[in-house]
């Protein structure tokens, strides 16, 4: 195995996950609807009506590690975002109907980030990545950059849902089997779970974010003990140190 190039050590202070597949979900939320995440109670009704199932998953995961009023710089990463809404709008145009302004505003890639900024009154730096073939790596690279620039803590939120059947996915590994949202509080030092991110040679295809995300959640769940997760195809490696 070629030697890995060390990129960065950091700590994971806290994390929360919501997934529509009960196997991947924390025991604490087993009572909730299996396919629709509960919305944090402090969010006003007028804002709740704008939350899609994917946005609800994201808010639920964030609520597990962020208190209302805590404003961290935030990095969102999603392979497909709300592309289902964009498809629905295209179908509306095809049918000769006028587009809904609300649907348009909620279809863009930073729509959920905008809803989050409003609901949490967060005016910190917020970045939204569409990582493509690099999968979950770039979100960490972005967050580590913000930490190096002086942020004490950065919230990273990875989320995706299965894409509409209209889109051909084969032969690419870019679609997940269920909705998954993972929120993580990263810092350069502290009492959290120490992790190391390394850049390693590419080898094969391990899939895009929707495929890698549940594997990464499993990695976090496995407890301590130096277990590493390799996404060789994209050249990133995480290990517990």
């Amino acid at each position: 195995m070629p030697s890995a190039l060390k990129v960065a050590d950091f700590v994971l202070n806290d994390w929360g996950v919501w997934a529509s597949d009960s196997e991947s979900r924390e025991t604490s939320c087993m009572h909730s609807s299996p396919n629709l995440a509960e919305i944090p109670g402090f969010i006003p009704k007028l804002q709740q009506r704008r939350l899609s199932p994917l946005a609800r998953a994201v808010f639920n995961a964030i609520d597990r590690c962020i208190k209302p009023g805590e404003n961290l710089p935030t990095v969102f990463s999603s392979a497909h975002g709300e592309v289902g809404k964009a498809l629905a709008m295209l179908e509306t145009i095809r049918d000769g109907e006028e587009l809904s302004p609300t649907a348009f505003s909620l279809s863009v890639h930073n729509a959920i980030a905008g809803l989050y900024s409003i609901a949490y009154r967060n005016q910190q730096e917020i970045t939204v990545i569409a990582p493509g073939g690099e999968a979950i790596g770039p979100a960490f690279a972005e967050a580590l950059g913000m930490l190096q620039e002086g942020a004490a803590e950065v919230l990273v939120v990875l989320y995706d849902e299965p894409i509409a059947g209209f889109y051909p996915v084969a032969p690419f590994a870019l679609n997940g089997e269920f909705t998954c949202a993972l929120a993580m509080r990263l810092a350069l030092a502290g009492k959290g779970m120490p992790l190391r991110l390394s850049r390693v040679p590419k080898n094969g295809d391990a899939g895009e974010q929707p495929v890698q995300l549940p594997l990464f959640v499993d990695f976090l769940r496995r407890g301590d003990g130096g277990a590493a997760v390799d996404f060789w195809g994209r050249g990133w490696r995480w290990e517990k140190i």
Binding site: L46, S100, P101, T102, S105
Partner: peptide
């Protein structure tokens, strides 16, 4: 809000 105004106008 303003998005509602657009939606209502439509």
């Amino acid at each position: 809000d303003s998005i509602d105004a657009l939606e209502l106008g439509l």
